[in-house]
Amino acid sequence: MAATTSRDGTYLLLVPAAAMFFLFMILPLLVLFVIGFNPPERGLLAVQPQLSLENLVRFFTNPLFYGSLLTSLQLSAITVVFDVLLGFPLAYIMARTSSPRVFTGLSILVLASMQLDMTIRLYGMIVIFGNNNGLINQLLVSLGLPKLQLIYNRTGIALGLVQATLPFMVFSLISILRNLDRSYEQAARSLGASRWRAFFDITLPLATPAVISGAVIVFSLSISSYIVPILLGSSRVSTISMHLYQQVSEMGFWQFGSALGLIMLAVSLGAILVSFSLSQRYAGSRF
């Protein structure tokens, strides 16, 4: 494709959006970075000239705080695993269906479920999984079985995170599963491989980059989710996002809150970098 010269001013079209991202994403993140390294001063929301490592030291020496990071990492990892297990079959069926109507219908359902207000979805989750009046527990009681504690604990947070992030996994997988060259799989089948053998030896490895990119999105969304742990968790399970909100909004520790934000950001970016190098490796080894 021939490159357009800047003579016709196409470059100018980039300026407003680029300015937007520079002014309202990059600069604010830099401000956050500096505040995270400012000495803590309760109630002060301003950039200070002095730098200090006090916030990070406080984080990594207090088990309450670094423990919350471990909890968040663990919950996010569980979410990724369940999203792959539940999302792969759904994406596979959507990608392989020969009926455009089935594909369209399922796509709209998954898309809409992704875009629906999270509070409303979590309200629905509480109605279904509620510990006292939840539909599942009503059913168990009517069958004479004991009630289950499904929410306001780790299980509840994991259920909520899977509900919230599953569509992202499904869409990451669909795009690649639809474009997979099926001749490899057909070749394997015609050479006598069973359907499952062909799936595990051919289709799954080909889809690995998509699984990785879906996992990253799901992981970053899970690690930074605040609404799911606050509504489906309890005060006994604290995630890093819950501490961030508490430190900033309830206690006025802007510096420590910013440091928590930086740690969250570092984890997300770290995940992106790891996945990038992994998918490069897989892309390199693909036939």
Binding site: V216, L221, I223, S241, L244, Y245, G257, G261, M264
Partner: peptide, 13 residues
Amino acid sequence: VLPGMVLGLALLS
């Protein structure tokens, strides 16, 4: 992919 909560805090600051 950036954590929305972190972006919100960064913008407020």
